[in-house]
Design a protein around this nucleic acid. Structure first.
Length: 679
DNA sequence: CTCATCCAT
């Protein structure tokens, strides 16, 4: 009995009893506010229990007694499912009964469901069918401070719906002090409701802020005395300072991207090897979304006894992934942000200083299980100068999908939609132009019938939606469904372990199509579902990401069902899948390339003598991304799925060869007369 | 010779 250990003798409870959560003592006042005010803004730190407890309070207080239900939205799928599981456990029911969740491809609800967790994007789609969201008595929008595109649109919609449904209660939950912004948004009358002068009295009765204290441990925050020149080097140094001078506990290092992370991990491993066993072992691990699920799982494994885990991560560990046992956080002070340039139509991905909100969220990751420390690799003055929050996504995105969705929701005047933060006019007009050129909007900027309405209903971006809806006329619908599903995976199709890049390249060559990436993706998918029998083994043998391929199967069948609703049917009879003669295959490939051109004509480029591409305006130098089959291959005209500027270079991804004449033929409005300079 | 993070009956 000498080695009796109290830690292994007791198993810690999975969850704290709800009554111990700080929120419990706010129950009465919270219910009073929800009863009295149409909109409640809840400020609650992580650990306050707001997400799990508030829906239960409401349900027990009778908010579902008239057959209506309580909806809780999350910006992420994992959050929607895990919170639902946890609340079901607390309530003591099976998930899908009284407590359920609904995300794309997974509806775990039933007639008995009274509390429903879901992604905010899904609730927007529900509004297409039920514009007043009449099933719900209360809608809680969680993590609203993240200001994702779908959260922002949802808030605008809910404000509009509330006017027609005074009985509807809204709860907006936010982790930071941005609550005032939500308050003024919901108390400000919209132009439609308020004649000038009215509405002042309403201001006091519409919305109210409620603050809940969190239950995290204290965190010491330390800043640098003078700025660091190279934050990656400084981060590595800081890791070793912690390792040699601080007590035990794992370290989480925030960096901006894959390159920095791989470098830091390698550096830490090398230095640890040099230092020998003076301070105990150290285990550096990378974490970013581009890793396979399997590689990501390592960060959750407990390090061997006496070994300190150091996780070098992107922003994924700021809110999406939570790792237990982190006591020290090292914050480099930067984050990669995406922005869309409406003049060039090109997205950029660049490192920018984090916001104060992000910095405190990062620090908070140190205090989840016991008191922690956060080392910021910037000065106190630099911190003070940081913006409160980053600009919301809606103000720096391609708004094509947003405009399409708003129009489908019956909001014709999208410019006057009540945005929490209106996007710049240039983004709006660029989106309208694109949708007009695709034929989704008419001369009066109204959604066309049937094309525009159908495009809005398909869950793919506008250019692909147009391509898909053109596919029957090119007799390649089955193939296009596959290509749409594969491109929407966003580059996670191919997969390789460290140092096996060569092997992956040769695997990919087996599926390679001379015409480019789209047909290569089609070949890979076809092989997966036929000879591969949708099995994981086939993926392992061919360096394909099994999870992604399985998802492609789901997306494809969902898109197929949509089209069937429009009375567009795909011939998938065995006869249609017979391998065709070579000449037929060539003709089929050409039909597919023409069809792609009918949707992606605005994404056309021509190769120059030096191997780079120029877009149609001629101003921008584009390069095939190294992950593209067209990297280092000759072409003339091409279309591409995506363009992104990172650092010095502007890359195009998913590239397919076309012929110049097709542009004029398939997009005569966009490419008017032959320009002698480009011919 | 390479890309932050999410989401959609």
């Amino acid at each position: 009995m000498a080695d009796f250990n109290i830690d292994s003798a007791f198993i810690p409870a999975l969850h704290k009893p709800a009554a111990l959560l700080p929120i419990a003592k706010h129950r009465e006042s919270l219910l009073y506010v929800v009863e009295t005010y149409p909109v409640t803004i809840v400020i609650g730190q992580t650990g306050s229990g707001k997400t799990t407890q508030i829906p239960q309070f409401l349900e027990r207080a009778g908010w579902c007694s008239d057959g209506k239900i309580i909806g809780v939205t999350q910006p992420r799928r994992v959050a929607a499912t895990t919170v639902a599981l946890r609340v079901a456990e607390e309530v003591g029911c099976e998930v899908g009964k009284e407590v359920g969740y609904s995300i794309r491809f997974e509806d775990v609800t039933s007639a008995a469901t009274r509390v429903k967790f879901m992604t905010d994007g899904l609730l927007i789609r529900e509004a297409l069918v039920d514009p007043l969201l009449s099933r719900y008595s209360v809608i809680m929008v969680d993590e609203a401070h993240e200001r994702s595109t779908s959260t922002d649109i949802l808030l605008g919609l809910l404000k509009k719906i509330r006017r027609k449904r005074p009985d509807l209660r809204l709860i907006i939950s936010s982790a930071t002090l941005q609550a005032e912004e939500f308050l003024s948004f919901f108390t400000q009358p919209t132009e439609e409701t308020a004649p000038p002068g009215a509405g002042g009295e309403e201001k006091h009765e519409t919305a109210k802020i409620v603050s809940l204290e969190g239950r995290t441990y204290p965190i010491d925050i330390l800043h640098l005395e003078s700025p660091a020149e190279h934050y990656v080097e400084k981060a590595v140094e800081t890791v070793f300072d912690i390792h040699s001078q601080e007590g035990d506990g794992d370290i989480l290092v925030f960096l901006t991207g894959r390159e920095e992370i791989d470098h830091a991990v390698q550096e830490i491993a090398e230095r640890a090897a040099q230092a020998g066993s003076r301070y105990g072992a150290i285990q550096p691990l990378p974490l970013y979304a581009g890793l396979s699920t399997e590689q990501q799982m390592y960060v959750f494994d407990k390090a061997p006894k006496g070994t300190r885990k150091v996780i070098c991560s992107t922003n994924i560990a700021e809110a999406s992934v939570t790792i237990d046992g982190i006591v020290y956080v090292v914050d480099c002070g930067f984050v990669k942000l995406r922005a869309y340039n409406p003049t060039t139509g090109i997205e950029t991905l660049t490192a920018a200083p984090v916001s104060k909100a992000s910095a405190s969220q990062r620090a908070g990751r140190a205090g989840r299980t016991r008191p922690g420390k956060c080392f910021r690799l910037y000065t106190q003055q630099a911190f003070e100068a940081l913006p409160e929050a980053n600009p919301p996504e809606l103000q720096r995105s391609n708004l094509g999908p947003v405009v399409l969705q708003l129009k489908a929701l019956g909001i014709d005047n999208v410019v006057r939609f009540d945005f929490l933060s209106p996007p710049p006019a240039e983004l709006m007009s660029k989106a309208l132009e694109l949708l007009y050129s695709l034929g989704a909007l008419d001369d009066y900027a109204k959604l066309t019938r049937p094309l525009g309405f159908r495009m809005a209903e398909l869950a793919v971006e506008p250019m692909m939606a147009k391509t898909l809806l053109s596919a029957p006329s090119f007799d390649c619908l089955g193939e296009m469904l596959t290509i749409a599903a594969m491109t929407s995976l966003g580059g996670s199709v191919w997969f390789h372990h460290d140092g096996e890049q060569k092997q992956m390249e040769s695997s990919r060559r087996k599926f390679a199509a001379e015409e480019g990436d789209h047909l290569t993706l089609l070949n890979a998918y076809t092989a997966f579902v036929t000879t591969g029998r949708k099995e994981a083994r086939f993926c392992r043998e061919n360096n394909l990401n099994f999870k992604s391929m399985t998802r492609a199967v789901s997306i494809r069948s969902q898109l197929k069902r949509y089209l069937e609703r429009f009375n567009i049917f795909v011939d998938e009879s065995p006869a249609s899948r017979q391998p065709a003669a070579e000449a037929d295959q060539g003709r089929k490939a050409e039909r597919i390339r023409r069809c792609l051109t009918s949707g992606y004509f605005a994404h056309a480029a021509r190769m120059q003598a030096d191997g780079t591409y120029r877009n149609v305006e001629g101003g921008t130098v584009l390069q095939a991304h190294p992950s593209s089959l067209m990297f280092n291959r000759k072409a003339d005209w091409v279309i591409f799925h995506e363009v992104m500027e990172t650092g010095e270079k502007t890359f195009i991804r998913d590239v397919t060869k076309i012929e110049k004449g097709w542009l004029l033929e398939l997009a005569p409005g966009f490419y008017k007369v032959t320009d002698s300079r480009t011919s």
